[in-house]
Design a protein around this nucleic acid. Structure first.
Lengths: 245, 245
DNA sequence: TTTTGAACTGTCACTATCGACAGTTACATG
DNA sequence: CATGTAACTGTCGATAGTGACAGTTCAAAA
């Protein structure tokens, strides 16, 4: 069994920001646990499927080539299961439930990915999804024991790492959106507009004239570089420029 | 320190569906850990505040009365922090960062809630948020040690319990939300509207008449229970009903 | 076979929005 | 004091959105 102290140290490091880069996190995880491979991906749900925004993994070049460029993530049942819920998905469970994807698992075995592993769904507040897939070269019985003991470690580490990634992305995006900063009133009128209020209603609520509401809204549209109030609100919600809570 | 075997047993029970009711989960958690109180709430982001959909807790009747009926969850900084991210929120950290909410903490102390605790954000795929707040009657140093050792247990237990709650809600709510599901065309017109396109432009893009675009948009508004396209798009983005372009 | 749901279309009348015109007031910063 | 920024207001005309009216077509499920 893995050294408990090492596990607690790893969790401390991840929680307090010592793993800004996925590579660091992956290395630390592989050093601490008997893990063969790790994969972290962020995805966005689309009407016709799944758009993978970011993908980090420890596979070899060839394996990555197969998995990514051939678009296997589009048909991977584990991804479908994991990105649709919040419960950890056991690889072998998915294999049993989706026999039509057997070729995928065989391909994985050929490139050195064992079939024992777990995928941890990591939802984020805005509705985007991510997952951390953990793969171990273990026998089923060995993995069962190991998983029971360390799933909690994997789950917390995954959550904290995911939080770091989200905060990192928010910081990186903040620079680009410097000119997109809205004033207090602009934010207010956008917020009320997103709540379905008309100019007249917003004017009454804020105690100003309807013309002034339009003035703020026009400024907001210009700053956001959009052509309609509807588009402005969509942008503002996506970029969390107006309060969600 | 808590018995490790008991912890693993608890996690097994929660994972394999033995905690369908919050009360069972709460009792099990309090029996296994040195926890004073637990609170699980599901919330939906709204433009004009926070809509708490479901709330379960182990507070006494009086405490619950204060916390819920007086609407303290509207100003609780821990809720704001936790529901806006995915990182565990330490109660004392929130207390330091938001001195204006000191009365809230004092009120909590008076009704027997200690100030040591942690709130675990639990996002779900659809963009809704939940959180599990864990409260312990411990001294700061005692809590610090305890937290370091058991945060992973809390996190996994919270995730698994949350998954059960979501699956339970999905089963129960399948009937209620049937009428809120958008059809393919409704999603399409909303998506283009969020991109700033007018009815005429959307009609051209989709190769249908302008009237038909309006028809789909009206249906979408009715399903989302909103009064304007702007509000519909805001709702759709928040609930991840339309893809991010 | 009947029913249901999605996709589709037309017109009328009213209201909301948006861009472009031309300003005032107040307050902080250099 | 000048400069800048946020907050504020008015009017005109064109375009966009919204609700209520009344339908057709097609495919899949009951």
């Amino acid at each position: 069994m893995t050294d408990q102290q090492a596990v607690l140290d790893l969790l401390d490091i991840v929680e307090y920001g010592g793993c800004a880069e996925p590579e660091q996190f992956f290395a630390l995880m592989r050093r601490t646990f008997k893990i063969a491979h790790l994969l972290y991906l962020e995805a966005e749900p689309l009407a016709d499927g799944l758009k993978v925004c970011r993908l980090h993994h420890t596979f070899g070049a060839y394996a990555a080539e197969i998995y990514v460029s051939k678009g296997l993530y589009r048909i991977d049942p584990i991804l479908r299961l994991a990105l649709g819920g919040v419960r950890p998905v056991e690889w072998t469970t998915a294999r049993r439930r989706f026999p039509e994807c057997e070729p995928l698992f065989q391909a994985a075995e050929e490139i050195g990915l064992s079939t024992e592993g777990v995928a941890l769904p990591l939802p984020s507040p805005a509705g985007r999804m991510a997952l951390l897939a953990i793969n171990a070269n273990m026998s089923p019985t060995e993995w069962s024991t190991y998983r029971r003991c360390h799933l909690r470690d994997f789950q917390l580490a995954a959550n904290l790492f995911h939080a770091s990634m989200l905060e990192h992305a928010a910081m990186a995006g903040a620079i680009d959106e410097r000119d997109m900063r809205l004033t207090g009133r602009e934010t207010e009128v956008l917020t009320w507009s997103a709540a379905g209020k008309s100019y007249w209603e917003i004017a009454t609520i804020l105690g100003i004239s309807e013309r002034t509401v339009r003035f703020f809204m026009t400024n907001a549209r210009r700053k956001l570089n959009v052509v309609s109030n509807t588009q402005a609100v969509a942008q503002a919600v996506r970029h969390a420029l107006i309060p969600t809570i």
